[in-house]
Nucleic acid binder design. Structure first.
Lengths: 135, 135
DNA sequence: GCTTGACTTAGAGTTAACTCGAAGTGATAT
DNA sequence: ATATCACTTCGAGTTAACTCTAAGTCAAGC
């Protein structure tokens, strides 16, 4: 099955502009063209785009994804490099998740603070005396 | 206990530049000054900066944090607005975590793919025939 | 009293990742 | 065959969040 750039864009919630930009930046090294120059995406390309989106969404810079893409074009001899990059990135993602969970905790504490009528009463009383700080 | 801008910057892994930038953008509405105009951070301000960092790290734009900060200066009467903003943002953060966990799964699958000798062998055989795609 | 160093401001510059516009080409519908 | 439409390229513009520079102020130590 083949897909046009707009079909792929729709599937991944990107714009055709963005896909061309990724292509220009060397992130889509496998995409073939029609005789008239239009990009043709195969199912294998869709998997590739999915990986690129995954790496992008987890904060990998375009430059690094480009390196990964170049390694992929070189075939089996770059497997170790690619595996290492993904393994390091994996660790990065787990750190992001941990950080988010900590931050979520702080937000929950803040919401809890607002849910406690005692705190609200205190804030109301403070009104005219001291400027309420850090609430 | 009071702190200088550099002490606070160090504590939160920010630069003094960035803290001044946040102040200019209205994110630090409670910070007092010395007679000579230097910022003085109290412990309450440290808690406030911690919240700002938390919101920033979870993707809240500066504009929205500014709104929140302005509400905070108005005192108890804006508690509902603030609680609602945090509650919506909380949901956003849980979505981020879910998305990251999905992406982590894909990365793990990819690493698993590279760890399977069968796949490596396949890739090596493909070398001269078809350009390796989506690996 | 002068130097040093940390601070101040306003505003310009940078970076990453898009995002858009202009000008043009090719395939399909009438 | 001509209008439409999706595509192409190149390059300029945008946005958010810093990041830095220049010019200046202030307090403490020699």
């Amino acid at each position: 099955m083949n897909y046009t750039i707009n079909e792929v864009a729709q599937k991944f919630g990107l714009s055709a502009h963005t896909l061309r930009y990724y292509d220009k930046e060397g992130l889509l090294p496998f995409i073939e063209r029609t005789t008239s120059g239009n990009r043709v995406f195969t199912d294998a390309d869709l998997n590739w785009v999915a990986l690129i989106c995954c790496l992008k969404d987890t904060g990998m810079p375009i430059k690094e994804m480009k390196t990964y893409s170049q390694w992929a074009t070189l075939g089996a001899e770059t497997i170790d490099e690619r595996k290492q990059m993904l393994t390091e990135h994996r660790l990065e993602v787990t750190r992001q998740i941990e950080k988010l969970q900590q931050n979520l905790k702080l937000i929950d504490e803040k919401i809890e603070f607002y849910n406690d009528p005692d705190n609200i009463e205190l804030m109301e009383k403070m009104k005219e005396r001291v400027r309420s700080r850090a609430n």
